[in-house]
């Protein structure tokens, strides 16, 4: 059964509609990546799923149960099944608590008093490859990457069914990043954990995600298996995004496809296809409004989709 089913999720802050209807579903044991432009609403999507951001419309079903706007009583037992890794690692750790208290806090919140918290702290730190003596430190005594790993340990404490991970590897060196992704992958395989991962690192997406959704201006513009999207991106925004990825080689020659103009205003969304003004591939038909169409599991919102080989 589908573990997470998000339908037509909408969020506005005053007159600004940040999410204009987002839908996707995640199966147990699946890793789903949300990528897209900075400011396109990725963090808002997962915060809304976890009940930490408002969502005025739409539905969020977890294990078949509606949780959008649910009462704290409904949500409380679910909090141990849904874990969140925040984008801002240091800011999300309360500065006055030791690392031991921080990573074992979920046990206390759930009233699991019989646990040996020292032993749990040790186990969790080991899991994210931090030495046991870090338990006595405070957040400001950690490097950026170490704080990130504490956030991961805390999220894993209660053996969740779903992890909502916002840039979990930002600030980690490639070796520690590899360790963390291998750990998540291992949990996914052994425990059937589902993961929604937001990341700007396209190299990470390629290796860890089964499927991915690409967001632009508060909507998904393309969705499909990671393999299909990397091989044959159909939406012009996806094509531009993938072409920009910096290569770890000073002599690499990249054929980048640049976006035109500036990111549009959320206060006056463009007419027709909302990507039209910046799209290097736009056609006359793009003044009409594209609908979300799914073909063979590949979703697309574009009136003039690309196909392999169609050049700029």
């Amino acid at each position: 059964m589908t573990l997470l089913d998000v339908k037509n999720l909408k969020t506005s802050y005053g007159p600004v509609n940040v999410l204009a209807g987002v839908s996707f579903a995640v199966e147990p044991g699946e890793t789903y990546a949300l990528v897209g432009e900075s400011g396109s609403g990725k963090t808002t999507v997962i915060r809304a799923i976890a009940g930490l951001a408002p969502a005025q419309e739409g539905s969020v079903k977890f294990d078949g149960q509606e949780i959008r706007g649910a009462s704290e009583r409904t949500l409380r037992p679910l909090r141990k099944d849904i874990a969140m890794m925040f984008q801002d690692p240091v800011g999300s750790l309360s500065p006055r608590l030791t690392i031991r208290s921080l990573i074992t806090e979920p046990y206390r919140i759930q009233g699991m008093k019989d646990r040996d918290l020292d032993a749990e702290a040790k186990r969790l730190l080991e899991m994210v490859n931090l030495p046991a003596h870090f338990a006595d430190r405070y957040p400001y005594q950690l490097s950026g990457g170490q704080a990130r790993r504490v956030g991961v340990a805390r999220a894993l404490a209660l053996k969740p069914k779903l992890i909502l991970a916002d840039e979990p590897t930002a600030g980690l060196d490639v070796s520690v990043q590899g360790e963390l992704l291998n750990l998540l992958n291992d949990l996914r395989e052994r425990l059937g954990l589902a993961i929604v991962i937001i990341t700007h690192n396209l190299n990470v997406v390629r290796h860890v995600a089964d499927r991915m959704g690409i967001m632009y201006l508060g909507r998904l513009v393309e969705e499909g298996t990671t393999e299909a999207i990397f091989k044959d991106p159909r939406h012009p925004y996806t094509r531009c995004l993938l072409s920009a990825n910096p290569e770890p080689d000073p002599d690499a020659r990249l054929e980048r496809i640049a976006l035109k103009g500036e990111p549009p205003s959320l206060l006056k969304r463009p007419s027709g296809c909302e990507f039209r003004e910046r799209c290097p591939f736009a056609q006359e038909i793009c003044t009409q409004t594209p609908q979300w169409e799914v073909d063979n599991g590949h979703g697309l919102r574009c009136l003039a989709p690309l196909h392999q080989g169609r050049a700029a």
Binding site: S175, G178, P248
Partner: peptide, 27 residues
């Protein structure tokens, strides 16, 4: 050398297990 080898940007085929540098940073 090991750091550069660990960069998933070099690995074009999907790898389920990513390379790492085994062992721990000294205290």
């Amino acid at each position: 050398r090991r750091l550069i080898d660990c960069d998933p940007g070099h690995i074009k085929e999907r790898a389920r297990v990513l390379p790492t540098i085994p062992g721990e940073v000294p205290d």
